[in-house]
Design a protein around this nucleic acid. Structure first.
Ligand SMILES: [Mn+2]
Ligand SMILES: [Mn+2]
Ligand SMILES: [Zn+2]
Ligand SMILES: [Zn+2]
Lengths: 140, 140
DNA sequence: TTCTTGACTTGGACTGTGTCCATCGTAGGA
DNA sequence: TCCTACGATGGACACAGTCCAAGTCAAGAA
């Protein structure tokens, strides 16, 4: 959204058409696209946008804390515009659908000092796995 | 260990020298090697073992539930022989060290029904991030 | 013990994901 | 309007992993 574009301009970004479409493609809820998906959607609006530019822009958005990188499996990373509100993920093992979820409790507090091996623990990621309603339906 | 080799024989595996060294390399606590690391350690004992065989054997051990696949970042998957005891991971953001940890509480129970979107939730992975004692030391 | 055979191994080609770089283009200030 | 440093581009490259046809051998049969 243009809030984001304004923030980026304030941080010294040049607002190019490429950056604009990447930011537009990432707008929405429960959006967790791969870089390739971002590229192909961006290319619908700006046919000659390059893969390198999409990767560069996503990387910069991640560095600035505007987008989160999510690694859920050994496949491509996913890019999550919902970076300002801390949340976790629920993933369908069958079709890969990803939902943002907000567990109760404090997962960091669940790690006793005796289980910290002297680490300074600063963050935690939780990934719930299961079957989405469509994939859980027995026959169709 | 040879418990594992015996179980594998019982499941119809041919015990080849390649499979034996892969299983031996995976023995121990807090072992989370990449396929390439398994390959290079295996090659110390059996110089001509191929990458394909290491990947095949690791994949079969995962299918049989004898080894767990751990995806912690966008890099190579890690293979964890501690598959029978459920546990989570604590990872140093600086050097990549991985420790097995056992958080208190029931992470699955922390996901309220209203946050399940109709999914049948069957599992959860928790990854704690921080700095290990060596990397947290200010100057060395 | 030797024979037989299908399961296993091998090297190399291939794919998917991501990075790097030299060169070209352009956003935005002067 | 002009300048120029920042950004875009395409293609080469790197890494992780998969696939395949051909050769090898573990282990049961005789
Ligand atoms: Mn999310
Ligand atoms: Mn582990
Ligand atoms: Zn599903
Ligand atoms: Zn460390």
């Amino acid at each position: 959204m243009s809030d984001l574009l304004e923030r980026l301009r304030g941080r010294g970004w040049r607002i190019t058409s490429q950056r604009r479409v990447v930011v537009e493609v990432l707008d929405g809820d429960h959006v967790h696209l791969t870089a390739e998906e971002v590229h192909s959607r961006a290319a619908l609006r700006l046919p000659e946008i390059s893969r390198a530019t999409v990767y560069n822009t996503l990387g910069e958005l991640v560095s600035l804390g505007e987008v989160m990188e999510v690694c859920t499996d050994g496949r491509a990373k996913r890019y999550d515009p919902n970076a300002r509100q801390p949340h976790q993920h629920l993933i369908c093992s069958e079709c890969g659908t990803i939902r943002d979820v907000h567990p109760a409790g404090d997962p960091l507090g669940d790690l006793p000092a005796t289980e910290r091996f002297g680490f300074t623990v600063s963050g935690v990621e939780v990934t719930y796995r299961g079957l989405c309603p469509s994939c859980a339906r027995p026959l169709g």
